[in-house]
Design a protein around this nucleic acid. Structure first.
Lengths: 176, 176
DNA sequence: TTTAGTGCAAAACCTTTGCACCCAG
DNA sequence: CTGGGTGCAAAGGTTTTGCACTAAA
């Protein structure tokens, strides 16, 4: 189960953290290494793009771990800094592994048609947040940034949406 | 779209569009000008920050318009380009008026403690999206960007959260 | 008259939570 | 053994939808 997803693999994330590193970080904060947690981390390790809790649940085979456990685990991992949360504007949270020592800050470019996700390293000019802090008196400023567009394939074939079982956004709630 | 971000000097949206302009835009696309719609547009006009559908509903007095109607209306207005959607990362959509002829592109700085919202004009370097398009072959690129931080007042008084009746985020589901 | 828009109620979906049980440490 | 973690079920909040009815054009 939970094979890597070649279509979404990106050079940037090919270097994955070994599972042992992740569990070590759990242990370091005296959290337990359980079956569900290892399985969840393994799913995240084998996918190059942020996943929803439901997608993780599905990748696990549904019987391996309760959905509520996934929600609780993601909270824990988020608090511990092992995962990052992304919002693609559809009201569903997505999570991806966050590197330990090198928290590689990056953003995502999402195709509005087929939901393919590309990891990019474009970012804000570094002094921009400092300027904001100065001008508005805010401290501890961080930002959320994501890009949306139409990918080359969808531009060419405007019909084919969400091909194969690619883990993109969950489809519309109902098909007419 | 994806024009270079016009550096609008207006620090806040003090200059409001007259209601007649908004209804004219509705009429122009042969949509009906109804009581609820005028009331909703009026609420948006009188608030300088993005509102959730629930906040709009509450501002209307609950009896003036059904919540479902607000959801449907926001969809319509979004499609027509009369409003913009903002996501502050709490899983609830927010909407603000979008200027007709001058779609003043801007972003928001949200206080993590009291949820106060400041409209800012800081934005990405204009050529950044063009570079992305070139490098990844995407077209029609747009971005969502929002900043989070701690406002001066909350930095000073770490206790008082969500003062006055400021329409900020609905209370968080859980405490961080 | 025509048809978009509305109110109401119900449902779908995401997320959280209470509780009893289980298992990693 | 002990407390954190889990499964299950139920609930809470947001958003959508079906249907009959209203009202704008």
């Amino acid at each position: 189960m939970n094979q890597p997803c070649p279509q979404h693999a990106h050079p940037r994330r090919l270097v994955q953290q070994p599972l042992s590193d992740l569990t070590a970080r759990l242990r370091a904060q005296s959290r337990k290494i359980t079956g569900p947690r290892q399985a969840i981390l393994d799913v995240l390790r084998s996918h190059a793009i942020p996943l929803t809790n439901r997608q993780i649940h599905h990748a696990l085979g549904k019987s391996d771990c309760d959905l509520a456990t996934i929600y609780r685990t993601m909270h824990t991992l988020l608090e511990m800094g092992l995962v990052r949360r992304c919002d693609f504007g559809d009201g569903t949270a997505r999570f991806e592994l966050s590197d330990a020592d090198d928290p590689r800050h990056h953003h995502h470019l999402v195709c509005r048609v087929c939901n393919i996700v590309v990891e990019i390293d474009a970012c804000l000019p570094p002094q921009l947040e400092a300027d904001l802090a100065l001008r508005h008196g805010f401290s501890q400023i961080a930002h959320h940034l994501q890009f949306f567009g139409v990918c080359p394939r969808c531009k060419e074939h405007p019909d084919a949406a969400d091909p194969a079982g690619l883990p993109g956004r969950p489809g519309p709630r109902r098909e007419p």
